[in-house]
Design a protein around this nucleic acid. Structure first.
Lengths: 219, 219
DNA sequence: CGTTTTCTTGAGATGTGTCAATCCTCGTGG
DNA sequence: CCACGAGGATTGACACATCTCAAGAAAACG
């Protein structure tokens, strides 16, 4: 009833419209949920991190593409027995509900970003998100499992982390072009709000300065 | 344990950050979920129609503003007993899960629209959505309850309906300005894809022509 | 190393936003 | 009944943020 599957970085795990024999939980790696229009415009809809769930109980066909960003391991369950499991153990159902609502909140926060924020605010928001996430990961004692993904190791008062994705993916996440992403990063760097020690390595000397650029209310 | 509350059109039902004593189900009327930035930029995150659910089991504070578009009646439940109810009747939990996942799908479809579609595609998408929704409503025999909201009554081959919201709300839904909304509607009219018999009344002679403007794959 | 991918930067085009004037629609009260 | 007023909608002119196209530079990779 339960088995594992692996995918290499860059591989498409699920194509929109695929028949879904199983549901799954992501065990290791990172994957993205995205949707692509006929002419190639694509929008990332979410990130899948370990423990995140893939597939919708009750729906047989994939609504979106799922792509592995790093090497990915999935823990798959056959659909029917899994739906039984949910029905019989209320605890599991509650947990899934919780996760669905978290994703809904994330999607809605992103709607505000996509619809109303400027390019600079978008970039700042993304950097803050990654900074917070890697910080949370280090606090929880989670470390990159041999893939060198992210480190929240503080340097002085600053925060230091790796960007896990290319400029193009950032653009697809933010509803921008990759050139605009690059330009805004350069501007934030010129303004002294971030430092780019290499293309993918970011240092944030003062997180409050960065947060002030997101357009969000500070609290 | 269960009681009703009414709100007038235009009234704010919930402010972001409010402490939520109850959860509720929308019985009659229309409401919007939206988020507003400090400087007034606002993004609509969703529509609430009869039978939709308000409030998140497990979270005590509102994450978004909820505003009545038409007069609204809510059926409210105290939080604790309601959470009991979910736990004890799996059927209810499943239904809520279903609704949450539907909202998630809607939010993600909107993310693609907000992040990647042009103004014209956005308008066409919204018109298609309203057209389909009012069409579904008439097919199901649901009629506007004395508020004259929407009618899918076919004229010849065309589809006819009322826009339930102002240009400004359309703009907030689509991540545009109201001027751009107005201009794009005029252009679609000039192109013969829609007719505007009055400011709020739309006739779509051929839905396929409109659908072709949405940027979505036809199927 | 050479090759390829990724990233940066520039110049110019363009879509959407901003500001402002005017028009339409509808409800209200004289 | 009509005039009036207020909110909603349209349209124009212009500004500007972001996109497009293009050339190179930097890093990654075999």
């Amino acid at each position: 009833m339960k088995f594992y599957r692996s995918y290499e970085a860059g591989q498409t795990i699920i194509w929109r419209g695929d028949y879904l024999e199983n549901v799954a939980s992501l065990v290791t790696g990172i994957a993205t949920i995205s949707q692509t229009m006929e002419d190639g415009r694509t929008q990332m809809l979410g990130l899948l991190l370990p423990s995140d769930f893939i597939g919708r109980p009750g729906s047989e066909h994939a609504a979106y593409d799922v792509v592995a960003v790093r090497d990915v391991t999935l823990c798959c369950f056959r659909r029917k027995p899994f739906e039984e499991l949910i029905r019989n153990t209320p605890h599991v159902g509650e947990r899934l509900m919780e996760m669905a609502l978290d994703e809904l909140d994330a999607a809605r926060e992103w709607m505000l970003l996509l619809g109303r924020k400027t390019a600079r605010e978008k970039i700042a928001s993304l950097l803050c998100l990654v900074a917070r996430r890697t910080d949370a990961a280090t606090q929880a004692g989670i470390h990159a499992q041999g893939q060198g993904s992210a480190q929240g190791a503080a340097q002085g008062e600053g925060i230091y982390f790796d960007l896990p994705i290319t400029r193009e993916m950032m653009a697809n996440y933010l509803g921008l072009t990759l050139e605009t992403v690059s330009r805004q990063l350069s501007q934030l760097k010129a303004a002294g709000i971030i430092q780019l020690t290499s293309q993918r390595k970011v240092v944030v000397p003062d997180l409050r300065l960065l947060a002030a650029e997101t357009g969000d209310v500070v609290h």
